[in-house]
Design a protein around this nucleic acid. Structure first.
Lengths: 205, 205
DNA sequence: ACCTGAACACCGTTCAAGT
DNA sequence: ACCTGAACACCGTTCAAGT
């Protein structure tokens, strides 16, 4: 299992093959089928192990600041997925159903419910946030790969762009390829602002 | 090219292999290397063709309703990625740099700038929205795959969950696995609400 | 009972050899 | 000049044969 994690982190999602794992363990692929049902099962186990690294404050319900707590939960998930930068793609292949995933979901949902989100809102809030983080994390991988290929190429292409056909892009070329972490934080705050508004609207009625 | 698109739509992203394409065209893999630099190039061309299907209103700048226009641009992108449900994964493999991608970005940026978004805000707004849509679209594929395997399994698992350890999840089990399209619309409105707030704050100063 | 080499049906990519 | 069969180095998965 830790060998599998090492392969994923060091050599990427594609390298996490049964052959590679068997080789590193000094075993054979056929033997691995005794420990894992198939590649999907291997992936699921590695994924849940990583999800276990995500931190969520298990605070007393009733504290007044839900926004920092929820933000922290999202940021922690994003950080873990950034640390294991190759895991995001694997999360597309299979929606996590492991025990650690269940714990994470429970904690965040409890947080929302404890802070006055109605039952109709909390699951949607959770789903939006989780998918938001995952969506960004997936693109982090792609981003890193592109960057390692050619850091400035995209930026250069944007500056070379035809100003007549693409005036807006041209005007924003200096801002446009921005660190994905910044985009993540920006969008997360948009979501939280939107959620706060909805919660308060609900509280008024 | 249309053959490649057919393969992608009907048989999935994995099936879009050089061998498969060569076979369908009655040609050989080696010959395809005369038309495409490599698989990534083939993928890039198919991807940009699909991006060309996205609709963005090329309205006069100055109209008062930016929110519906931006929402429509995001929804159209989401719909196209849903129609070609296997393309999302390919967008992770390679960030789109084709001509159609450039046009889409230009239109949305122009829309934001025309409606009073400052230069510091517009690119971040665009980036957040684009990544939001893409992130969801990626999960749409995974979701569909999971569903075709077993529609009700996740829901059932959620209802079977230990109410002592997971009270919040349990309380929300009836709402929790919700149509991803609904989650998408919900989160999109959160983002737009957050953006409206930021734009107005900026206008005040 | 447990393990594994070898097989089967696939990949992307390259290249010598054919027309 | 253009095309391609065959090769090379990989996959996931299975199974007969070994210990």
């Amino acid at each position: 299992m830790t060998t599998a994690l090492t392969i994923l982190d060091e050599d990427g999602a594609d390298a996490l093959s049964l052959r590679m794992l068997a080789q590193r363990l000094g075993s054979s692929t056929a033997t691995l089928y005794r420990h894992f049902e198939n590649r999907a099962d291997l992936v699921a186990q590695v994924v849940d192990r990583i999800i276990g690294e995500i931190e969520v404050d298990d605070e007393e319900p009733g504290a007044t600041h839900w926004q920092p707590a929820v933000r922290a939960a999202a940021v922690s998930m994003f950080k873990v997925l950034s640390r294991h930068r190759n895991v995001a793609v694997l999360l597309t292949e299979q929606i996590p159903t492991g025990p650690n995933a269940a714990v994470y979901r429970e904690r965040v949902l409890a947080l929302l419910l404890a802070h006055g989100f109605p039952q109709s809102l909390a699951p949607r809030a959770y789903a939006s946030l989780a998918r938001y983080v995952l969506g960004f994390a997936m693109q982090l991988t792609a981003d890193r790969a592109a960057k390692s290929r050619d850091e400035a190429r995209t930026s250069a292409a944007l500056h070379r762009i035809d100003a007549t056909r693409f005036p807006a892009t041209r005007a924003l070329a200096d801002f446009l390829p921005m660190p994905i972490e910044e985009e993540f934080a920006f969008g997360l705050d948009l979501l939280l602002a939107g959620l706060a508004q909805m919660r308060d609207q609900h509280a008024e009625t």
